[in-house]
Design a protein around this nucleic acid. Structure first.
Lengths: 258, 258
DNA sequence: TCAAAAGTGTTTTCTATACACCCATGC
DNA sequence: GCATGGGTGTATAGAAAACACTTTTGA
């Protein structure tokens, strides 16, 4: 959706291709060098930030809608993407906060009564994880801004999105112990220290320097490479890579990291 | 919804009070004397069974809708009720399987094009647990039958409800280790053997006779009563009851049972 | 006194955690 | 050689599992 014309058509006739009354919202977590960030967008005509989201095409599944949304904003595909909760409180969206005038100007409408977008909307929350340094943030005509925010200092969010973030973070941290989430946040080859730092940042707590690598190796997902990384005046750490086969299996079947 | 007239009005004008394109479905698990059952309903004009469900009123939250649904079918309130997943695959409902003729007869319509019910519907899954011997199954005008089925021998289900049951069961079993779920499935006063049997049945596996009670007591949710139960030619077991305060706290904050 | 079920105690095994210590590297 | 981070080994505490044993009850 890049032109004003397409946007107008979406507002007026979107319900022909998209399911009304339902949307998805995505909490996209980004990791890089020991900082955890969250991607937020600012809609046109809105002053506060919100999670990226959108409607579901009549031909696609929920995950596909979420995946399309994430791809649209980050340019990335095949991220770890999980449903975490569905939100539907009656007052989760305050339509009276919208900028009527601007809206009428775009659409040529004089009232939003009966418009498919201006109705009670339930939203299915998804979260994704990625390396934010690899992303190229993209907007479309409906979005004014798009940016990464430090997880510790998020701005006030629109709608019920603050609660969504809280839930998303909670679920993501739970999943860290039951799924291998790391493939998209680490380079192809990485050291144990790097993955250690990743887990510490995502979980927001310290993990034992000695025991964490042991547990990780015990899972059997890692291949120890013969290569080492040169890090200057220190012992060269071994490089590891994920065993793709075991990784994808663990994604399906789950695992237990204590 | 008890009369033919109300049913017709729901079909024709329900979208005024209910949100279209979204529904909730409930997997209601029932326990009694070491058997685990699931409540299923059969819609009018449908040959197979399905999970009870319905639309969400514009004024209520998702849980409230689920709660209303459960109450309607079982007569029970305040059950442990949890969202487990939202389902939205494009082909989850095959509208062409519906009995058109019967439908037209009821409504006086000659086509279902444009009817609010005949559109892509996303469904939010909830599960509940109760003692099935305490329930009084109730139907309404839209439902032909309502019955408990043994969890091990469920009939084929409509839509994607088989997958829903699988997911509901999985989530319920996970939650058993993180929430106190038992209040609604046991009498006010119960023995350790009874709660032991409950957990074994819900989890579908054996739990150690000696260690399970220890862990349970260690949680601190139980009050040991001075009363005992007389069970014939055997040692009389102590009766226990839940500590309401600690129970409700644990419902909110969670707990860890290994 | 015996069978059956309740309940307790003990032994063994496993695992989590803390921490001491050795290794590799470049200056 | 020494400072620094990488990596390994071990000792200890605590939890989980297995199971033997004691208690209570009514026939």
């Amino acid at each position: 959706m890049q032109t004003e014309e397409e946007f107008k058509d979406f507002i007026l006739n979107g319900h022909l291709h998209y399911i009304p009354n339902v949307s998805i919202d995505c909490a996209i977590f980004g990791y890089h060098e020991q900082t955890l960030k969250l991607m937020l967008i600012r809609h046109r005509n809105m002053s506060s930030w919100s999670l990226p989201g959108g409607h579901i095409k009549r031909s696609e599944t929920l995950v596909e809608a979420a995946s399309r949304n994430v791809r649209m904003h980050t340019g990335l595909d095949n991220l770890f993407l999980q449903q975490f909760k569905t939100f539907g409180d009656p007052n989760r969206i305050q339509f009276n906060k919208f900028d009527k005038e601007k809206w009428f100007e775009i659409t040529g409408l004089t009232s939003w009564e009966g418009n498919w977008l201006m109705d009670h909307t339930i939203s299915v929350g998804f979260y994704a994880v990625t390396d934010f340094s690899e992303t190229v943030l993209q907007t479309d005509i409906s979005i004014a801004e798009c940016a990464w925010f430090d997880i510790g200092s998020l701005p006030p969010l629109e709608f019920d999105h603050s609660e969504m973030v809280k839930e998303a973070l909670h679920t993501m941290r739970l999943h860290l112990y039951h799924y291998p989430i790391g493939l998209n946040m680490l380079p192809e080859k990485f050291t144990l220290s790097e993955i250690h730092a990743l887990y510490e940042t995502l979980l927001g707590k310290k993990l034992d320097v000695s025991n964490f690598p042991k547990k990780l190796i015990a899972l059997g997902l890692l291949n120890k490479l013969t290569e080492k990384r040169s890090i200057g005046a220190h012992r060269s750490p071994h490089l590891y890579s994920f065993d793709r086969e075991k990784y994808t299996l663990a994604l399906k079947e789950g695992l237990v990291l204590s």
